[in-house]
């Protein structure tokens, strides 16, 4: 039983990482109807920036904050330079552009930092604490706490600030938002910036355990896709819940369904993704838009 709880906690920790990245996908999809296939690579890129800063002697938390700022500016810049020109193009064109971005950023990282695996420091101690007989790693707890703090801040931003309100409004009704004085096209860029920040957080949280290399996020992004789709691609709450659920589920499968082995974690996630899409094409937390053919 105690092992079960440990598995749950560490599942929640990795689920938190999926949730952050899934939320980043949802933020962008809500406002631009685009799935950003490059989200994972952008997160890895941000993590490399943090690594460089720390490698040059900066201490962890200043490097963390500076990385978030750089990621934000980078996200805004990507939207302005790469996505803006195809804003009105068919969805598939934009998808292709984000795939181009994925390949480009991935290659650029290997070019700039070499494809070799790097170790990334963790701000949390590697000890475990004892909670009623259950040993819980502070690492997992730290990651989970970090995720919760991020999500709370984001929630407060969207709920209580004027810009947050404008972001939500621009996503649901761009035309009316413009009539209310909102510069909608900048809101889209802002959304990309925020998503890039979220991605950076998830990258820096996962890097200590998965090690830093250009393909670090390739599998994680699939989990994030699955989480986002699981919760409904337009539902922020759904993305978070979906991420946590998926994290716990995968962890339990890894621990108790040994015949599947570690290789099948990803296919299992894929199967969940497909199954959900087939049963509820709009995800668990969204009302389906009926399409009859």
């Amino acid at each position: 039983m105690t092992e079960f709880f440990q598995q749950i906690v560490s599942g929640l920790a990795s689920g938190g990482v999926y949730a952050s990245l899934a939320l980043a996908l949802v933020l962008i999809h809500r406002s631009t109807q685009v799935i950003n296939f490059a989200q994972g690579e952008m997160a890895t890129f941000a993590t490399y920036i943090a690594w460089t800063l720390i490698d040059r002697g900066m201490s962890y938390w200043p490097a963390f904050v500076l990385t978030l700022l750089v990621a934000f500016v980078g996200g805004v810049a990507v939207e302005r330079v790469v996505i803006r020109p195809v804003e009105r193009a068919p969805v598939l064109t934009v998808v292709m552009v984000t795939i181009g971005l994925l390949v480009l950023v991935n290659g650029a990282m290997a070019w700039l930092w070499s494809p070799e695996v790097k170790s990334f420091p963790s701000p949390f101690p590697s000890r475990a604490i004892d909670v009623g007989g259950v040993a819980i790693s502070l690492q997992d707890l730290g990651i989970l706490g970090m995720t919760l703090v991020t999500l709370t801040l984001l929630y407060l931003f969207f709920r209580f600030t004027k810009v947050g309100l404008a972001l939500r409004a621009a996503a649901v009704n761009p035309e009316s938002s413009r009539l209310a004085g909102v510069r909608v096209s900048w809101m889209l860029a802002l959304g990309w910036g925020l998503a890039a920040m979220l991605g950076a957080v998830s990258g820096m949280m996962i890097a200590p355990t998965s090690f830093l290399e250009p393909n670090m996020m390739q599998v994680i992004i699939i989990y994030a896709f699955a989480a986002a789709v699981l919760g409904g691609i337009n539902s922020p709450v759904g993305a978070v819940v979906g991420g946590l659920l998926l994290g716990v589920a995968l962890n339990l499968i890894g621990a108790y369904a040994e015949f599947l082995g570690p290789e099948l974690r990803l296919p299992v996630a894929l199967a969940i993704l497909l199954a959900v899409l087939l049963v509820r094409p709009a995800g668990l937390f969204e009302r389906a838009v009926v399409k009859r053919v």
């Binding site: 195809v86 193009a89 552009v97 181009g100 390949v103 480009l104 650029a108």
Partner: peptide, 21 residues
């Protein structure tokens, strides 16, 4: 560079979608 092809692929994909759909 060993990584140049990926960078060029990516850039090509973006440029073609933007300039030459």
């Amino acid at each position: 560079s060993q990584q140049a092809p990926a960078v060029i692929y990516g850039a090509a994909l973006i440029l073609i979608m933007v300039l030459l759909p």
